[in-house]
Write a protein that binds this DNA or RNA. Sequence first.
DNA 1: TCGGCGTACTTGATAGTGTCAAGTCGTGGC
DNA 2: GCCACGACTTGACACTATCAAGTACGCCGA
Lengths: 193, 193
Amino acid sequence: MAQTLRDRVIKAAVKYIADSGPDGLSFRQIAADAGVSHQAPYHHFGDRSAIFTEIAREGFQKFTEVMSSPARRDEDSNLSVQLCERYVDFALTNKGYFRVMFRSDLCQMDESPETQRAADEAFDTLLVAVGEILGSSASIDEIRVQATAMWSVAHGLATLLIDGPLERKIGKVSDRRALVRSVANRMIDGLTS
Amino acid sequence: MAQTLRDRVIKAAVKYIADSGPDGLSFRQIAADAGVSHQAPYHHFGDRSAIFTEIAREGFQKFTEVMSSPARRDEDSNLSVQLCERYVDFALTNKGYFRVMFRSDLCQMDESPETQRAADEAFDTLLVAVGEILGSSASIDEIRVQATAMWSVAHGLATLLIDGPLERKIGKVSDRRALVRSVANRMIDGLTS
DNA sequence: TCGGCGTACTTGATAGTGTCAAGTCGTGGC
DNA sequence: GCCACGACTTGACACTATCAAGTACGCCGA
């Protein structure tokens, strides 16, 4: 209860988005649920899109934390695969954030340097990790292409799992981790050698 | 002018979505632009989400056409890479459709067998293509993982290019085809061997 | 030729939405 | 004591999808 209204609003919004996506979300409803007037949320954020922008900011921040935590040094699990796993894990356990982070139509990042910085930091984390994996011999350009490739496969897998028809198509994914791992492995085999 | 209102509505909606995303879209505005009453579009589609569902259906149909057209037999371009290129090409030249096709929150496919069938057909096309690439020795399970992997990388690349922060992060993509090709190549090297 | 009938719309009303513009109310500082 | 300011409320507005009627018109069987 010590939670500020601002936090409660964001929390409720993130929960709703995780369950039903960002589109039907009504901040009037959230305000009513919180027992405040319909205008109260807009006092803390200028307008509707500002709330999404803030959610994206927090999302990128959490994302950076997750992706930059120290790697396990298993012999049976490639570092690239670990990155991929973490990405997908983050997306699936933080649907409410993830669904907003990559929706430029909702967020209008250009008006929020903080969110932009958080997003930059997130990608930089990825770049650094890929750089470490490739080693010092790799050129900047090579790292870039490589990071894009890894980002793509992780992002694609995550979005297809969350919103896409993947599950319905390849059958129930009983062991998500195994799928992610085998997909990532398959993709990555050719490039760290 | 021989175009039916139904077609005009869809066309206008797809254009709007390509420009600004599906969320701010107002069917009342589209009706006004078309010079008909605010209720006219809803006569052809039961409700708002039915229009999106129909857009998705057409999208998957177009997608299947594109993906199943005969492959070029260049020696310098791997078949898998070609698939990937086509996927991304489709997404970028059909933003208006693509942005809707994978938004299960907008589409409610479960109420439209046609759209569901179109989506199934689209993925089957992908499965078949991957099966051909892998050859007859590959197991069903292997094809599935492989298809998922290819789908992921293509889908991720496409969505990151369309809505995501990719361009801002890796710099202006002057030659998109080259990027797609190098990413796809890098990803695919390890697996068709 | 006429009556019905279904399709393609229109018109009107309703509930719900974000947003602008004014309040009100309490707390902290001078 | 007062005043400013932050946190909210209240009320109005324009806009939205959606429900429920109504209207116009072409077709088809008798």
